[in-house]
């Protein structure tokens, strides 16, 4: 009994979805979107400040990138230290030399589209050898890291 009911139901369902035999072909219409005028966007989030404890030889400064770019494009971020490689005290009378670790000063994203909740992260590492700490008078020193972003082919 149950089986017969199932078959009947199946047939009924088939009829409800069949195209009426009496329909006729008209033609095909392309569906397209023109993204050429859509502006690419990306956001690189950098920390305003990174604090290094006296004596710390390496400090990792993290930043993140999300983007919506043209196919084949990515974001390249470059980080530069102060031109003279020195952090300075407020009076500009004392200096603390530092550098950025090789290999950490550039990052290129891996995809054209990166959602903000899955932003790609990278770090630039500030290096201050112990010898440089030992040469510096105890003071509050400040330096500036400059982050630059540009589009690049990936």
């Amino acid at each position: 009994m149950k089986k017969v009911l199932s078959l009947v139901l199946a047939f009924v369902l088939m009829f409800t979805i069949c195209i009426p035999v009496f329909a006729e072909y008209v033609g095909s219409t392309p569906v397209r979107v023109d993204g050429s005028t859509v502006g690419a966007s990306y956001t690189v989030t950098i920390p305003a400040t990174a604090t290094i404890t006296w004596g710390q030889t390496e400090k990792s400064v993290e930043y993140s990138v999300y983007s919506q770019l043209a196919t084949g494009k990515g974001v390249k971020v470059t980080v530069n230290a102060d031109a003279d490689g020195k952090m300075k005290n407020a009076a500009n009378t004392a200096f603390l030399e530092y550098s950025l670790k090789s290999g950490t000063t550039e990052y290129t994203t891996t995809k054209s589209v990166i959602l903000s909740e899955n932003a790609e992260k990278s770090s630039v590492v500030v290096q201050i050898p112990t010898a440089n700490w030992d040469k510096a008078s105890i003071d509050n020193y400040v330096g500036t890291l400059t982050f630059s972003a540009e589009l690049t082919n990936i």
Binding site: G39, A40, S41, Y42, T43, V44, T45, I46, P47, A48, T49, A50, T51, I52, T53, W54, K59, V61, E62, S64, V77, M87, L96, Y98, V126, D139, N140, Y141, V142, G143, T144, L145, T146, F147, S148, A149, E150
Partner: peptide
């Protein structure tokens, strides 16, 4: 991420972060 982060984008392609000693 520190509360006061800065952002670069297509319009603002360069920005600075301060490194300071504690």
């Amino acid at each position: 991420v520190p509360a006061f982060a800065a952002e670069l984008n297509a319009t603002t392609q360069s920005g600075t972060a301060t490194v300071q000693t504690d």
